[in-house]
């Protein structure tokens, strides 16, 4: 029986709240980044690329690579590996540049 990261460090987190991801409600532990909340649900991709439409998610985990961009509360290009998840956050898979609404 393998242990979990939380068990390793003896974590006793405060009560979980929920965030929304592409219409699904996900439990979020306080203090986790949005990317961590998604990983905890075994979700690894929340963006598609501009050219090839390929799925991407967190890669560097420290805010350097910008692969983990998502649209959060309507604002595109948010680095989910840095952004703390907050109650009621609405995260949507970002397609390409995430700015299609601006096109003329």
């Amino acid at each position: 029986m393998r242990r979990t990261p939380a068990e390793l460090v003896g974590a006793q987190p405060a009560a979980a709240y929920t965030i929304e991801f592409d219409g699904r409600e996900l439990p979020a532990l306080p203090g986790r980044s949005i990317a961590a909340v998604l990983w905890a649900q075994d979700i690894l991709a929340w963006r598609t690329t501009r050219v090839g439409g390929r799925p991407r998610g967190a890669f560097c985990g420290i805010g350097v690579c910008f692969d983990c961009l998502a649209t959060v509360n309507g604002r595109p290009n948010q680095r989910t590996c840095l952004l703390p998840a907050r109650p009621g956050d609405v995260v949507t898979t970002q397609e390409g540049h995430g700015r299609a609404d601006l096109a003329v």
């Binding site: 939380a6 974590a11 990317a35 961590a36 690894l44 560097c60 985990g61 420290i62």
Partner: peptide, 23 residues
């Protein structure tokens, strides 16, 4: 290397250390 689930070694560490999660 662009497939989801491929992460940097440091990134796996960082996500584990700060978020207590694994890829």
């Amino acid at each position: 290397w662009t497939l989801p689930g491929v992460v940097t070694a440091g990134g796996a560490q960082a996500m584990l250390k700060s978020g207590l999660v694994l890829p």
